[in-house]
Every structure is written in structure tokens, then in C-alpha cells.
Computed example of a mutant assay.
Amino acid sequence: MSYQHYRLEELARLVQGELVGQADLCLQGLASLELAEPQHIAFVNADKYVEQAKVSKAGALIVTPELQQQLDTHQNFIVVANPYLAFAILTHVFERKHTQTGIESTAQIHPSAIISESAYIGHYVVVGENCVVGDKTIIQSHSKIDDFVEIGKECFIDSHVTITGEAKIADRVRIHANTVIGSEGFGFAPYQGKWHRIAQLGSVQIGNDVRIGSNCSIDRGALDDTILEHGVIIDNLVQIAHNVKVGANTAIAAKCGIAGSTIIGKNCILAGACGVSGHLSIADNVTLTGMSMVTKSISEPGTYSSGTGALPNAQWKRAVIRFRQLADVPLTQLQKRLDHMQTQIESLESTLKLRK
């Protein structure tokens, strides 16, 4: 296996950092503080990692000016304001790039499709009628790009992805394995004890720099389009139903489900396994903690939670009993008890005042 080497001064220039130490030190990869070897560069992001950094074998460290002063066991540094951001930038430097272009012989491309000469179409890919695939886009093996789908520039479509429903995908979008974009939304009209299918006539629009993980499903709209705005990032195993709109730079973690016609604002965070009911609106800059269930609109930014945190099993069982007991007591009865307690408190306070 061959490795690409970079001199420390080159890496410092790429992250606009200050070089301290040996400018021509050759480095061939990133590593954690614990597993780094002399040919690696690692990053230190907080005071709590200083002791670990002191004993690290890393050839160079990415640090803040304050952290550098604490690391007298090392001589080679890239000094920046945000080490984690610098690390993120350098991951792209050391990432193994796909450089192949062209169309593999086993791919099936409709004659009307427009494929950029700089794109790559992998083995057994099917590209349908009137599709467009932009410059430097990579489509890996066994994917299906259905009729009238448009894919922009520098996208990455992993293996076994299906894109259908006349979806429109902008530039630098990454869609990972086994995900389906533009599948039929879950729309049915109940009548006389039966469910009558509603044909889904909308599409899916995905903005620039969107990332969608593996095994996700993004449904096409019933009439209006399902929309993911620029910079949205989605983890694995996420369901987004028809007519949902997700605002720019919102992050959705694994196993979330968003029901139809919900609007989620910009810069939101949905932690793992959140559920959002349909036809709701969530404001910009809202964070939902893990396993939250949203059943009504949220109009103010902030952090919201629901559900119960983990407890020791015996304590949880006692809590469940209390929940059941509480549910069995009518609300009016609870109110009367509280009113009676309030009256007793006020009576005691009056008696104490008279005694003084």
C-alpha cells in the first residue's frame, strides 16, 4: 500500500496555521493521540487531553497557542485557533480520492441521458431517460438513476442507491449505500374500510452540500416537493416523509422519523431516534435531545426534550407504578387535593402570625 506524504509546512499552509518546529518533517496520515506514530499528525482540542498528548508518539500536533505552552515534550506543531476544524480540513487531504472517469461496460445508459465526460458511472448502474449527471460526479455500482433525475457536479452516489421520482440534486451532494431518494410517499385515503392509494405527483429537491447516510428514505411529495435545503446533513436510518421541508444546515441523527408536511427550520439539531409528527412547524435553531417526540409545533429556538432518562431497573418499575396511579386519578380530583392543601397552608400561616 502506497502512502502520500506531506511536509509539515504544507499542512500548516493548508489550514492557515502557524508552523512551529521542523518545516520539512514528512507526515503520511492523521491518527488519534493514543495510536499515533512518528509519521502521524494528531490534534489536541482541550486541556483535558494535555496529559494524553504529552505521552503521544505523534510526529506533530495541531494545537491552540495556549495548549502549545503546556506541551514541552513535543517540538513540532501547527498552531491554530480551532484544532478540530483544522483536523477536519486535513482529513480531506489524506482521504483516498476516486480518480477514475468514464462509464463501465456493464452500465446501462439511456441514449437520451446526458453524462459529463468527467463523471464516473460504475458497474451495473442503470441511468434512465433524460437524466443528467454533472461534472466529476461518481455513481458507484448497482445504483439506479430513474427517468428525468438530475444530479449536479461533484456528487458521490454510493452503491445500491435508488434515485427516482424525477428528483433534482444540486452540487457536492453525498448519498450513501442503500438509500432511496424520491420513493412513493405514504399517502392513502380511507373509504369504506379500505385504504385508497394517492398517486404521488411531487418530487424531491436537494440543495448543495447535503449529506445523506446509508439506508435512508426521502419520499417524494404528494403535490408539492420534498425539500432539503443547502448544507443539511443526515445520518443513517432516517425516514423523511412526503412534503417535508428541512432548512439549511440542519443536522438529523440516526433513526429519526419525520412525518409528512412538516417544516423544520434552519440550523436545527435532531439527536438520535427523535420522532416528529406531521403537519408541524419547528423554528430555526431548535435542538431536540435524543428520543424526543414532537407532537405540536415549536415556535421558539432552544433545546427541547421528552421521554424519561435511564434509571436502575427497580427504580424504573416503581416510577411506572406511580405513573399508572397518577393516570387513574381524575385531574379534577388532583386539583381539589391541591386546593385543600393550599387552604391548610394558608390557615397555618395565619395561626403563626396571630401567635407572634
Score class of each variant (00 low, 15 high):
Ile121Trp: 14
Lys356Ile: 15
Ile151Arg: 02
Lys168Leu: 13
Thr308Glu: 10
Leu270Trp: 15
Ile298Asn: 05
Ile264Asp: 06
Met291Cys: 13
Glu66Asp: 12
Ile233His: 05
Asn215Asp: 10
Asn82Met: 01
Gln200Asn: 12
Lys136Arg: 11
Leu30Phe: 05
Asp146Cys: 07
Phe87Met: 11
Gly187Asn: 08
Met1Tyr: 01
Gln140Asn: 07
Gly260Glu: 00
Ala199Phe: 07
Tyr84His: 08
Thr351Arg: 14
Ser277Arg: 11
His160Ile: 01
Glu300Thr: 15
Lys353Cys: 02
Ala86Glu: 12
Arg7Ala: 13
Thr106Gly: 10
Ser32Met: 01
Phe323Tyr: 15
His242Ala: 11
Leu280Thr: 02
Gln344Thr: 09
Tyr49Thr: 02
Phe156Arg: 10
Lys136Gln: 07
His340Gln: 15
Gly152Lys: 04
Trp195Asn: 08
Gln200Leu: 10
Gly247Leu: 04
Val79Lys: 07
Ile139Cys: 02
Ser141Leu: 07
Ser159Arg: 10
Ala189Lys: 03
Glu150Cys: 09
Val63Gly: 04
Gly272His: 14
Thr343Ser: 14
Leu19Phe: 02
Ala36Phe: 00
Ile115Phe: 15
Thr164Val: 09
Ser214Asn: 03
Gln22Asn: 15
Asp24Ala: 10
Leu338Ser: 03
Ser203Cys: 09
Gly134Thr: 11
Glu229Thr: 09
Ser32Val: 01
Gly29Pro: 08
Ala23Gly: 05
Ile227His: 04
Gln200Val: 05
Lys353Phe: 05
Asp158Lys: 06
Leu30Gly: 02
Thr99Ala: 02
Phe156Cys: 04
Asn313Gly: 15
Ser56Asp: 01
Arg13Ser: 14
Val161Trp: 01
His123Lys: 09
Glu349Thr: 12
Asn208Phe: 03
Gly231Gln: 10
Ala88Gly: 03
Gln69Asn: 10
Gln200Tyr: 09
Lys356Leu: 10
Asp146Val: 04
Lys245Leu: 12
Ile62Cys: 05
Ile263Thr: 14
Ala113Met: 09
Asn243Trp: 04
Met341Arg: 01
Asp147Tyr: 09
Ile175Ala: 00
Gly309Met: 05
Cys26Ile: 01
Gln22Phe: 02
Arg7Asp: 11
Ile258His: 07
Glu117Asp: 14
Ile233Leu: 04
Ile282Gln: 09
Lys97Trp: 06
Ser203Val: 12
Ala58Asn: 01
Gly29Gln: 09
Val63Asp: 00
Ile198Ser: 14
Tyr124Cys: 05
Glu18Ala: 06
Phe43Ala: 09
Gly275Ile: 01
Asn313Thr: 15
Glu9Cys: 02
Arg172Gln: 13
Arg197Asp: 13
Ala107Phe: 11
Arg322Asp: 14
Glu346Gln: 13
